[in-house]
């Protein structure tokens, strides 16, 4: 996982161009979206609701991919896969690591 870059700026540029203001707006919006999504994933995990975990992870994965938060997107895919396979221990580990991935994205964005 560590070899996957935290952030690839080219992804966002290829989608919306190089207007810095728009880029910053989308980055900021993504960070805002991370907070409730992470809470939702954790709550669904605690309720043992694998479908809700999968849905919340899939939702955040879309914007993670779009803004180029690659490691985060990859982690969310792992979460989806673990939830689908009902591997609770792995799922817990991925959710914990997702928190760190989001912190890393934040550092890159700021």
């Amino acid at each position: 996982m560590s070899e996957i870059p935290v952030y690839d700026p080219k992804v966002l540029t290829s989608l919306i161009g190089d207007d810095q203001q728009s880029i910053n707006e989308y980055k900021s919006e993504f960070l805002k979206q991370c907070v409730p999504s992470l809470r939702q994933i954790a709550a669904a995990f605690n309720n043992n609701d694998k479908n809700a975990v999968k849905e919340a992870a899939h939702y955040l994965k879309t914007s993670a991919k779009a803004v180029g938060a690659l490691r985060c997107a990859n982690r969310l895919q792992e979460i989806e896969d673990s939830a689908l396979a009902e591997q609770r221990a792995e799922l817990k580990q991925h959710i914990t690591l997702l928190q760190q991935d989001i912190r890393d994205v934040k550092k890159e964005f700021i």
């Binding site: 989608l15 919306i16 989308y26 919006e29 993504f30 979206q33 939702y59 955040l60 879309t62 914007s63 779009a66 803004v67």
Partner: peptide, 10 residues
């Protein structure tokens, strides 16, 4: 049609 508003807006 997209539930994620960030990607939808893009």
């Amino acid at each position: 049609v997209e539930d994620n508003h960030i990607y939808r807006d893009m």
